[in-house]
């Protein structure tokens, strides 16, 4: 009788612990939720990362356009300066006496 009772305890105890664990942790549903949560978090994170990626080409295009304008203005300034230098040389020539 004692032996039978001990055997029953030995067999049932792990089953009970396992059942309790399943009940307390809600293993399958928690796992699903957990996975979903990870996915959602991951999705949110991915979306958060995607926003700058989406706006970055636009910002880069803007910067590129503005840099293009700056390059045009720099080239115009350089040409203006060179035109000034030519004009100064021409004025020096005109100021040199070529006689009557």
């Amino acid at each position: 009788m004692t032996v039978r009772r001990s055997a029953r305890v030995v067999l049932l105890a792990p089953v009970a612990v396992l059942a309790a664990s399943l009940i307390l942790t809600g293993c399958s549903s928690l796992g699903t939720t957990s996975t979903a949560a990870v996915t959602t978090t991951s999705g949110a994170s991915s979306t958060a990362t995607a926003a700058p990626v989406t706006s970055s080409p636009s910002a880069a295009a803007d910067a590129s356009t503005l840099n293009g304008i700056a390059a045009d203005l720099n080239a115009a300034d350089a040409a203006n300066n060179e035109a000034d230098a030519s004009a100064t040389s021409g004025d020096q020539a005109a100021a040199s006496s070529d006689g009557p």
């Binding site: 080239a75 115009a76 350089a78 040409a79 203006n80 060179e82 021409g90 020539a93």
Partner: peptide, 26 residues
């Protein structure tokens, strides 16, 4: 040389600098 040759050359150079580069870039 001064009153014509050099002076006209530099006026032309100045003008070309504007028509060829400054104005198109602006």
């Amino acid at each position: 040389v001064y009153a014509v040759g050099m002076r006209q050359s530099y006026i032309a150079a100045s003008a070309d600098g504007l028509t060829g580069t400054a104005i198109p870039r602006l």
